[in-house]
């Protein structure tokens, strides 16, 4: 790579880190632009994350009409009463943060409790917070009371164990397999935790932010530098 190009990339990355994202986006040559973006991501990972102070007053929107702060606060209050040790840190008005230890009992209680009756697990998202922390986020919905709640469970990347709720909501079977496949979160008690979207013998957890592709797969070289692809 020539000196000029490297200098161009460095300049663009500096400007982007200072807040001007267009510096990277406006690079003409496609390959150089891609390299600049990769370098930017790398630099951002190494730096502590900056708070973005663009839109000061706008808070993140509510999820959807049936969800209101009331539901989250009600559930949060009941959980604090019944399982006081499982609330993890500061609570937010939009979601509930839990510790992974008692998750199965809490889930069972959430499902069977007639006030809440969350009989439908809408979505299970894996999440990489960076700094070696993973999260599993559950969106629940009740067909009877028509309210929703979001629950987040944080674990560390070294020991990512979360109890599986597969026996309560059968849809969690495949959702948890997918989260395991992409993030490596180990759902204990799952009957058949194996990869679902990737081949069984793939190595690595792709959706983590620090994922590096493996060198070869069954003898085929996995390309890392995508130069010259037309």
């Amino acid at each position: 790579m020539s000196e000029d190009k490297q200098k161009l990339i460095n300049d663009a990355v500096e400007k982007a880190l200072a807040g001007d994202a267009d510096a990277v986006n406006n690079i003409e040559d496609r390959v150089t632009r891609a390299k600049a973006k990769a370098a930017l991501v790398k630099a951002q990972r190494e730096q502590p994350k900056k708070e973005d102070s663009n839109d000061d007053a706008s808070k993140p929107d509510e999820k959807e009409p049936p969800v209101s702060n009331n539901t989250v606060q009600k559930v949060s209050a009941s959980l604090a009463a019944k399982f006081p040790k499982s609330l993890d840190g500061e609570q937010n008005s939009d979601w509930i943060q839990l510790k992974p230890e008692n998750w199965f009992e809490i889930a069972k209680w959430l499902k069977d409790n007639p006030d809440f009756y969350f009989d439908s697990l809408q979505c299970n998202t894996g999440f990489d917070l960076g700094e070696g922390l993973l999260e599993s986020r559950y969106n629940f919905h009740s067909m009877k009371h028509l309210h929703c709640v979001e629950i987040r469970i944080r674990v560390s990347a070294e020991k990512p164990d979360i109890p599986s709720v597969e026996s309560l909501w059968r849809v969690a079977d495949w959702f948890e397999r997918e989260t395991y496949d992409m993030f490596g979160i180990n759902f204990t008690g799952h009957s058949d935790l194996r990869r679902i979207l990737l081949p069984e013998d793939w190595e690595g957890w792709p959706l983590r932010k620090d994922y590096e592709e493996q060198e070869t797969y069954h003898g085929i070289v996995v390309p890392k530098v995508k130069e010259g692809w037309e």
Binding site: K49, N54, E64
Partner: peptide, 28 residues
Amino acid sequence: RPPKGSIYSRTESPRGDLGYYIESDGSD
């Protein structure tokens, strides 16, 4: 460039509930 935050929103596609969970960190 959405503000920091997350959202889970559902719409009705011909096959069922289509849900998008988007988390933004303030960048584009």
